[in-house]
Write a protein that binds this DNA or RNA. Structure first.
Lengths: 189, 189
DNA sequence: GTCTATAGGTAGATAGAC
DNA sequence: GTCTATCTACCTATAGAC
């Protein structure tokens, strides 16, 4: 009765489930065996696809980045930058709106970002690079509006992360978009 | 050569080390054995003091709350509330300044807050209560300054949490206080 | 109060059958 | 490609000696 999957679909299904499991328990806290059970297979079967726990984590992050590449390019077009305050606010609102549709991903990144503070965490380098890039992108967008876009970018990202965390805590039944728009309106001159 | 400790000092020493270990690897990710080794004792010796891993975690949180009780009462005096914008900003700045002196604690709470999103996490109830109380305290302080102190309190807490996380990421060599003061100045009318 | 010893379970990973 | 079986290592917790 089990649907047979080809290699690619199976890998994708495992990675999707891994987002939830790692988001719930963290990299150190989840087990390959638990993840495999949720995928209706054995741990040995799962490891056939990814080789090791660390490789699996890196595959999750790579997979997400590949999926998100187009969306990010559309949100942050470098050839057609936002021109005024209204456009900048719309860009940020679109980022938050996109995240609001994918709570498991927001949770995964919230969890890994804290775990990866440890220099020996397998995702440490990933987050150093990723967060630096995010700050640069945000600063570029804020350039026309601020004398110190780097500092403002930090504050915008901080507010976003903090509100998203509260939104996760409240079982998603608080109005993240409204709260974000109010913050952005105050934070961005 | 080992210094002999009485029961209370030994417990306190274990709890202090536990803050660092749990902050680094999370509740699921750390082991009693690792913590015990860092305390120069065996796991059985450590469990004599706390009984179980879960009890240890709750003891850490209780211990911190007891230690912080006076500081919190001093920062948020209900009988002498802040009267104007300048005073409110000073209260919040004092909160951030206090956190800036205790990075291991900030990291512990950052880690546990995300882990404890899971309803079956031993600290889940603790954070539901704690964060609700924090929002109420912040809203009370913001009452005289805002039409919607509850909403603003969320945004203030979000910005604080987000900036503190970035400060942890950057090995503490970015100016948390300056960044916070800039944010607060914009966020609080 | 801390130790050794150990029980009983689970971890990540590998080997080889099908 | 997934399984069973297994290795080795580690886990939490308890029992009992000192």
């Amino acid at each position: 009765m089990r649907t047979r999957m080809n290699r690619e679909d199976r890998r994708a299904a495992i990675l999707d489930t891994a987002i939830a499991v790692i988001g719930e328990r963290g990299f150190h806290g989840f087990s390959i065996r638990d993840l495999a059970m949720r995928c209706a297979m054995t741990d040995a079967g799962l490891l056939h696809h990814f080789g090791s726990k660390t490789d699996l984590l890196l595959a999750v992050l790579d997979h997400r980045d590949a999926q998100d590449e187009h969306a990010i390019a559309a949100l942050f077009p470098r050839d057609a930058p936002a021109r005024d305050r209204g456009e900048v606010l719309r860009v940020f609102a679109a980022v938050v709106a996109r995240n609001a549709e994918r709570p498991e991903l927001v949770r995964l990144y919230a969890m890994l970002r804290v775990e990866a503070l440890a220099p020996d965490h397998p995702a440490h380098a990933y987050f150093v690079t990723r967060d630096r890039l995010a700050r640069r992108r945000f600063a570029e967008i804020l350039g026309p509006l601020s004398d110190s876009p780097d500092r403002l970018a930090r504050q915008v990202i901080a507010a976003m992360d903090g509100l998203e965390l509260q939104w996760l805590q409240e079982d998603r039944d608080f109005d993240l978009m409204a709260s974000w728009n109010e913050t952005a309106d105050r934070l961005i001159a």
